[in-house]
Write a protein that binds this DNA or RNA. Structure first.
Length: 555
DNA sequence: TCTACCCGCGCG
DNA sequence: AAAGCGCGCGGGTAGA
């Protein structure tokens, strides 16, 4: 059973009950938006419907702010974006959104009416503008119909459910926020950079490092933040680097190199996660980044603001559990190679996956026990490396795991030829770029060379897409299942909430007494995800789980 | 002076 | 150590 939420004229809200096929079973009921949370809580407790709305982000943040959680939903925009490209629905006749001439992009079609106000304003003045209940119900029917007609209806159903659950989880994680110890963060900054400066001056330790650098390079006016100036100063000092990248600088021996690398490290800390970051993103002891579900072509989540998915290892020491609480940090070990083994049905690689350390298993099977070699070879296969060590190791990897290698090779060939490739559950690549298409129309040999390079680029993208995208599906299923388990723990009165997600890693903030139960839940959820995606496959997805006080203590 | 892009580096 | 994939962000710089 579905319950539709849609904007009504004059800032009101419509609620409408829909049957299993998406047809209304009642008239749309108009509500004052201030009553929405109460109404939704009541319906939720009574019926546990699947809430249908254009976008979770339009409605759910405000509901959470009002203390209302929902069990499940169907996010029409996220689903439309998947179905619009999915190879599993290409013959279904589905076109996203309201019937409209030239409709191409699902999200734009559904959202071409005035955008809703930003989260948090829902109960203040006006409800989100957008298509009314008729349009949304019709879109839901189109989507359900396309899925039902698909030869892969089960997988698509799972994908849309996982993506919609993901949208709920993203809003909930944002609502909760990562517990952040601003004092600890400030102490770290002060220790590394010196006390917080007033105005725009460099912190004292950073300025001192710059001075050291100027002396050692004999460049008294040098601004080390300017790549151009730095380059000139390096050349004058006899360092013939052709870029200012840290890894390249490391190859030169000169007394200025070490302090320069230290300067870069310090400057990076200041600009990316310094006091300004703390001011902008941490409030009330929580870091609240914005997650963008489906924000990456492969289906991974992206984030906006605060660099939520790039928190450096050392800064993670400021992510601290509250007193009497713990962080349960879990990450899926070598997720992508394991996903590849399952995708390809490669029995030999699956056997290696029974080893807790997949790379060690592969090393033992065919790389003379050299784990580093096994890892380089496998990652090279997934990313499309052709040169260097991983290129040389490919033949050996192919002998060991012909099916797994064949799968990524096929994905690469398809991409080079402009075909789309598809994840296990049904997310397909967008059609080739204009750049690719244009490159097909070549006349000269030089153009052909460039066309080949562009094709190889796309091949590496599609090669990686099937693996990265399917791994993202595993992770979303993992979290969706975990969410249910944590909700049950909370129903017992315990504190246990998801507060962070990073591709193949989750962090749960839990009261001490619930930490072990959370660790168990997170492991059970991983097993459930494996069974959901790959029923009966002999591939294992082990986690490393740590119960810690601060995030940096994990692994 | 403003904008668009590149560079470099953080994460998986 | 980087390379091969996917991102976001801040600072500098080139060009309007």
């Amino acid at each position: 059973m579905y319950e539709l939420v849609a904007p009504a004229p004059d800032g009101g809200v419509f609620l409408q009950r829909l049957g299993r096929a998406g047809y209304p079973t009642s008239d749309a009921e108009a509500l004052d938006p201030t009553d929405l949370a109460v109404a939704i809580r009541g319906i939720e407790e009574r019926d546990r419907p699947r809430w249908v709305w254009q976008r979770t982000t339009d409605w759910y943040p405000a509901l959470l702010a009002a203390g209302v959680e929902v069990d499940r939903c169907h996010d029409l925009s996220l689903s439309a974006a998947i179905l619009a490209h999915s190879a599993y629905t290409q013959d279904s006749g589905y076109t996203p959104g309201v019937p409209a001439a030239g409709a191409v992009d699902a999200d734009h079609v559904l959202a071409r009416v005035p955008p809703p106000p930003h989260q948090g304003t829902l109960f203040e003045h006006d409800a989100p503008a957008g298509p009314g209940p008729d349009v949304l119900a019709s879109e839901l029917r189109d989507q359900l119909g396309a899925v039902a007609r698909s030869p892969q209806a089960k997988r698509l159903t799972l994908l849309l459910a996982a993506e919609s659950a993901g949208s709920l989880i993203a809003a909930e994680i944002q609502h909760a926020g990562v517990p952040w110890d601003a004092a600890a963060h400030n102490a770290l900054l002060t220790d590394r950079l010196g006390p917080r400066p007033t105005g725009f001056a460099r912190p004292s330790l950073l300025e001192a490092k710059a001075g050291e650098l100027r002396t050692l390079l004999g460049a008294p006016m040098l601004n080390p933040d300017s790549p151009q100036e730095l380059m000139r100063a390096l050349h004058r000092a006899g360092i013939e680097a052709r870029s200012t990248r840290a890894w390249e600088l490391r190859q030169y021996t000169h007394p200025a190199i070490a302090p320069l690398l230290e300067y870069k490290k310090m400057a990076r800390l200041l600009s990316a996660n310094g006091w300004a970051w703390l001011d902008a993103w941490v409030a009330d002891g929580r870091f609240r980044p914005e997650y963008v579900v489906g924000g990456v072509v492969t289906g991974r989540w992206a984030s906006r603001g605060g660099g939520a998915m790039q928190i450096p290892a050392d800064v993670r020491s400021a992510a601290r559990a509250l007193p009497g609480h713990r962080l349960v940090v879990a990450d899926a070990s070598q997720l992508e190679p394991r996903v590849l083994a399952a995708l390809a049905g490669d029995e030999a690689m699956a056997a290696a996956s029974r080893d807790r350390d997949l790379y060690a298993g592969i090393a033992a099977a065919g790389f003379g026990g050299d784990r580093a070699q096994a890892k380089v070879a496998l990652l090279g296969a997934i990313y499309g490396a052709t040169t260097g060590e991983s290129g040389r190791l490919m033949p050996q990897l192919t002998r060991l795991y012909p099916r797994a290698v064949a799968l990524v090779e096929q994905a690469a060939r398809d991409g080079e030829r402009g075909r789309t490739v598809t994840t296990h559950l049904g997310r397909s690549t967008p059609p080739p770029s204009e750049r690719w298409s244009a490159s097909q129309r070549t006349t000269t040999a030089e153009e052909q060379r460039r066309a080949d390079a562009i094709a190889r680029d796309r091949g590496r993208f599609t090669r990686n897409f099937v693996v990265q995208g399917t791994a993202a599906e595993w992770a979303e299923c993992w979290m969706a299942d975990l969410r249910g388990r944590l909700r049950r723990l909370r129903a017992e009165g315990l504190t246990a909430e998801l507060v962070y997600f990073l591709h193949d890693e989750v962090v749960v903030h839990a009261e001490e007494a619930a930490a072990e139960a959370c660790a168990t839940a997170v492991r059970d959820a991983a097993r459930a995800a494996g069974r959901l995606l790959f029923p009966g496959a002999p591939v294992e997805f082990p986690l490393s789980v740590a119960v810690v006080e601060s995030y940096d203590q994990a692994k």
